[in-house]
């Protein structure tokens, strides 16, 4: 007998970033978003590498007039490279939701031999949909993966349509507003990391569902950080 072992079998959790890359995102917004996600990837890589409960994969869909996946499949955070997103065009959220819906299946993006945890979907947008998003939303809401996913929306600046974002998350508390660059960065990092850890945390007597835990964590983070206080240009 020896003491050699291979890595323990783990389920996978896919973290989806749905990024609005319409024309209005140009400048500081997309610049800080790009920076923020690029800086968050090493943390996710660390989390995945040191977590015996879950492997973490990343998938990114950018949507404007068209929709486009950064990689054809969710990819191990170890191998994930963030290339700066370019912006331009409209905000076709409906189309993005249809595209996401088609990938949220065991045959598509969630085909893990050892199975998956419910995904985490983070939607980042600074405006309102320019297409008919209602149908897309109705359809994806029937998808069980979407139903069980932890859904968080980050509303960038004052023009973000928070009602639409709440429809997406199904909970207005899961919509977080950010108004400046440092807040955006901090929130992207905090939300990604917190939601990726949710399957390996001990739960307390007063905790609700995993979604509740994540949202409570984010809310108390937002409340203690006074993020609008910083000496930073507003979006």
């Amino acid at each position: 007998m020896n003491t050699e072992r291979v890595k323990i079998a783990r389920k996978t959790m896919v973290l989806f970033f749905l990024v609005d890359t319409s024309g209005s995102m140009s400048g500081t917004k997309i610049g800080s978003l790009n920076d923020a996600i690029r800086e968050t990837v090493p943390d996710l890589k660390d989390l995945s590498a040191n977590n015996p409960d879950a492997a973490i994969k990343i998938a990114t869909l950018q949507f404007d007039t068209n929709v486009h996946w950064l990689y054809p499949q969710p990819i191990e955070s170890e191998d994930f490279v963030w290339n700066d997103l370019k912006v331009g065009g409209l905000t076709n959220l409906g189309e993005a939701l249809n595209e996401l819906n088609s990938k949220l299946s065991k045959e598509q993006f969630l085909q893990e031999a050892a199975g998956s945890y419910a995904p985490v979907i983070i939607l980042l947008s600074d405006g309102g949909p320019t297409d008919n998003y209602k149908d897309g939303l109705e359809n994806i809401k029937k998808n069980n993966w979407f139903k069980y996913a932890i859904k968080i929306a980050i509303a960038i600046g004052n023009d973000a349509d928070k009602n639409v974002l709440s429809e997406f998350t199904g909970n207005s508390e899961a919509v977080i507003e950010v108004h400046n660059k440092s807040a955006l960065k901090a929130i992207i990092k905090f939300v990604s990391v917190t939601s990726s850890q949710v399957n390996s945390k001990s739960s307390g007597v007063t905790d609700g569902t995993k979604t509740d835990t994540v949202i409570n964590g984010i809310t108390s983070y937002v409340n203690t950080q006074n993020m609008d206080d910083v000496d930073d240009d507003f979006f």
Binding site: I8, A9, L110, G115, S116, N144, W145, K210
Partner: peptide, 23 residues
Amino acid sequence: FLLFFNNHPLEGELISNCPCMTE
């Protein structure tokens, strides 16, 4: 069990066949 076998004792086929481990 983990210490000796590096596998969770309740995690076999039923677990890996469960596509989405919801609460």
